[in-house]
Design a protein around this nucleic acid. Structure first.
Length: 498
RNA sequence: CGGGAUAUAGCGUAGCCCGGUAUCGCGCCUGUUUUGGGUACAGGAGGUCGCAAGUUCGAAUCUUGCUAUCCCGACCA
């Protein structure tokens, strides 16, 4: 039984995804139910995401801080809607000590004498503990705004998990801001949505639709939830980021008030926004092919992999000298380079290996090439045998060409994703077409909706499709709801979703 | 949490119905050979058969319980 190939996307999309995640060394299942181990190569990609996002957060005036993983139940309960929304998936700490089990030598049990007076909730999100803290930080309008972000792990006890897409514990960042006015908080909410969209499109090469969630899909405790929605290669939608306008809900729950210039006390306005390791899933499912991962250069831990080809030690010396000097030159212009000089593997093996791991550019060079002053360049964004996948370049000019090639790959991956989304987005005007397309050609469906949660719920029950968002750029047009026939003024975005 | 399936060496697997301590491939180690798309040959190491009980002279195989994973539902980012 050969382990060479991946399952194909066409035959079994889930198997393809699961295998790819494991085989590309991104992550694996752990001994803990629903929790994953993120492996070094996968974590390196996450770190690239973190860097890019963190830079953008700082550039928009935010600072990082850290709040505890545990939330006393009484705090957690304070904002009722939020608490209700998460109650079903909370891990709860009840004891702080273990002891030897008297009935079972060598085993441990929670010490009954160490039961906590008040249970601690493992954070599914941190609004409660953060707003409880903000209460102490805010007295005057001079204390506002508070613009914080934290990088953290959270726990949501899910029934069914999948590597990166839905795990019991996951990594994310959560921004929590407090403002003096509604306008400012709303501006912050929209600004961070734009930051996410910019990151997704320019760094992840992932086209996204910016929109507003319907009431059903809104974050518990928010007045309005904004999101970016992306389309995966199997035609399912994936929510890639959310930004919430919290109104004064948490300020009221935690009694966070400030004195304005006029001396009047008013509740603070809030926002929160986050993206998670789920983005890794989006990255994989949006771009990769049956040969493995395809990474956009701006996120690739290695942008270029170099593979030397030689027979004898003498040849090795010749090739390695040249290839090392090229490597140094590339590093000088901040290209992330991996030189795979492992003698125990053949070049062919390395080609397959780095292809599986999605490195954007492969440079291969043997003695012949050194003699001829050339180097082979292979692009991961093009299929094997496709025009332009392999080219022979002059060593003399390769250094200056690589940045342009990487840029071109970044753009071509994005264009390809845009093309896919365009081809898999359809306007539908009746329920029959809607249902038919969901099965025959899954993707984004733009359809009129009467605006009621009841209709959305019924469509969901009957078709499994949900309203991903009401696109921000939706054009006003007269129409009738595909389900109820009632009047509607704009189309909303439907899809089956992850 | 419901329905179905699976769990055997690092990975992928055969054996299970019809009980007798385990098959094959990849990988790993040694040597030779090869190296421009997953080299070839020879030799070698590696297994509490998911865990725990039970039935039996004897359990990977039969029974029960537990755990984990996958698929389908419900729930959710």
């Amino acid at each position: 039984m050969s382990q060479k190939g991946l399952p194909s996307r066409k035959d079994d999309y889930s198997a393809w995804y699961n295998e790819l995640v494991k085989r590309a060394d991104l992550a694996e299942h752990s001994a803990v139910k629903g929790c994953m181990v993120i492996k070094p190569y996968g974590y390196a990609i996450w770190e690239m995401m973190q860097q890019e996002l963190d830079r953008r957060f700082k550039a928009t005036g935010h600072q990082n801080a850290y709040f505890p993983i545990f939330i006393p139940k009484s705090l957690f309960e304070a904002e009722e809607k939020n608490a209700e929304g998460f109650a079903k998936e909370c891990a709860v700490v009840t004891h702080y000590r273990l002891k030897s089990d008297p009935d079972n030598p060598g085993k441990l049990i929670p010490d009954p004498n160490s039961r906590l007076e008040e249970e601690l909730i493992v954070r599914p999100t941190s609004e409660a503990v953060i707003w409880n803290t903000y209460k102490n930080w805010v007295q005057s309008y001079r204390d506002l705004p508070i613009l914080l972000n934290q990088w953290a792990n959270v726990v949501r006890w899910e029934m069914r998990t999948r590597l990166f897409l839905r795990t019991t514990e996951f990594l994310w960042q959560e921004g929590h801001t407090a403002h003096a006015t509604l306008e400012e908080a709303m501006h912050e909410t929209r600004q961070m949505l734009s930051v996410y969209a910019d990151f997704a499109e320019n760094i992840m090469a992932l086209p996204v639709v910016k929109g507003i969630k319907s009431e059903n899909e809104r974050f518990a405790g928010a007045e309005e939830t904004f999101c970016i929605e992306a389309l995966m290669q199997d035609g399912k939608a994936l929510q890639a980021g959310t930004s919430h306008f919290l109104g004064q809900n948490f300020a009221k729950a935690f009694d966070v008030k400030f004195a304005g210039k006029d001396g009047k006390l008013e509740y603070v306005w809030g926002t929160s926004w986050g993206v998670s390791t789920r983005l890794m899933g989006a990255l994989i499912m949006a771009h990769s092919d049956d040969n493995g991962l395809i990474l956009p250069p701006r996120l690739a831990p290695y942008q270029v992999v170099m593979i030397p080809i030689y027979k004898s030690d003498e040849q090795r010396a010749v090739v390695m000298e040249k290839i090392n000097s090229i490597k140094k030159e590339l590093e000088k212009i901040n290209i992330r380079v991996k030189l795979d000089d492992d003698d125990s593997q053949t070049p062919g093996y390395k080609y397959a290996e780095w292809e599986l791991k999605g490195v954007p550019v492969r440079l291969a060079m043997g003695v012949r090439d050194v003699e001829n002053g050339v180097i082979e360049v292979v692009r991961r964004d093009k299929a094997r045998g496709e025009e332009g996948q392999k080219t022979i370049e002059q060593i003399a000019t390769i250094i200056e060409k690589i940045p342009a090639i990487l840029q071109d790959i970044q753009e071509s991956i994005y264009r390809k994703a845009i093309k896919f989304r365009t081809e898999n987005t359809a306007k539908v005007d009746n329920y029959e077409d809607f249902k038919r397309l969901l099965d025959e050609k899954p993707g984004f469906l733009l359809a009129h909706w009467d605006g009621t949660p009841e209709t959305e719920e019924k469509i969901k029950d009957e078709t499994k499709a949900t309203i991903r968002c009401i696109p921000l750029d939706a054009t006003e047009e007269e129409g009738t709801c595909i389900y109820s026939g009632k009047p509607s003024t704009k189309r909303v975005l439907f899809a089956r979703a992850y």
